[in-house]
Design a protein around this nucleic acid. Structure first.
Lengths: 109, 109
DNA sequence: AGCTTTTATTGTAATATTGCAATCATTAGA
DNA sequence: TCTAATGATTGCAATATTACAATAAAAGCT
């Protein structure tokens, strides 16, 4: 059906899945990595940096913005994007907490 | 097109995206959480635990297995699944390294 | 006002994902 | 051997995602 049955899962499970989904595309990883490097905000040279068309980049930025991990402020004709430090921290620790739970387990089979 | 242009990204970017994609569905999160709890291997009671049909669970297990973070060994008529501790550790640190890079950044806009 | 630059939006095509019914394969037990 | 149990596979329908061309929207400049 292509439709995830979110209602049968907990809020945290859905939250984790949403966060992971935001990172589940190399273009979005590349965008975030570029923002890490540049630190000071970046606008539309992402199109140059990554080899995808402008609407495609814009769409990926939208998804990252919707999750809240980046923000964009209008600066003249261009838009300045950067990591939302607080939200990133929050997502980061939420994800790490999950990852750590798996480290404790040991093989059985 | 629905087709990710993997060829324009680095191996690490694609690897990260693949890992994130494995976690990008609440059912797979739920499966992993159940495996964390049970530690000793679990078979098909995941169908009971999570409210999805058997083929659907089987498919999600397949994806996790393909990434290598769980393994399944046949035990009579049932199959015993568990976290692959080494692979989990590897994925975990790879992801955490990425997450940490973002924590350093500070807001700009 | 008209033009340019930059980004967002819309529309569309191709592919991927999710979910399940039906079915197959394997193994255990009668 | 036959049957039951378990899980994988197949086939299909519905929805989501990815990508881009075309276009719109907003702001600066002349």
């Amino acid at each position: 059906m292509g439709l995830t049955k979110t209602e049968i899962f907990t809020g945290d499970q859905n939250k984790l899945a949403r966060m992971a989904k935001a990172l589940a595309h190399p273009a979005r990883i590349a965008i975030l990595e570029h923002l890490f490097r540049i630190n000071s905000c970046v606008c539309g040279d992402l199109v140059q940096e990554i080899g995808l068309a402008q609407p495609t980049i814009s769409q990926h930025l939208k998804e990252l913005k919707q999750l809240g991990i980046i923000k964009g402020t209008i600066e003249g004709t261009s838009v300045c994007y950067c990591i939302d430090a607080d939200r990133w921290q929050e997502m980061s620790s939420f994800l790490e907490q999950f990852l750590k739970r798996g480290v404790k387990t040991k093989d059985c089979c």
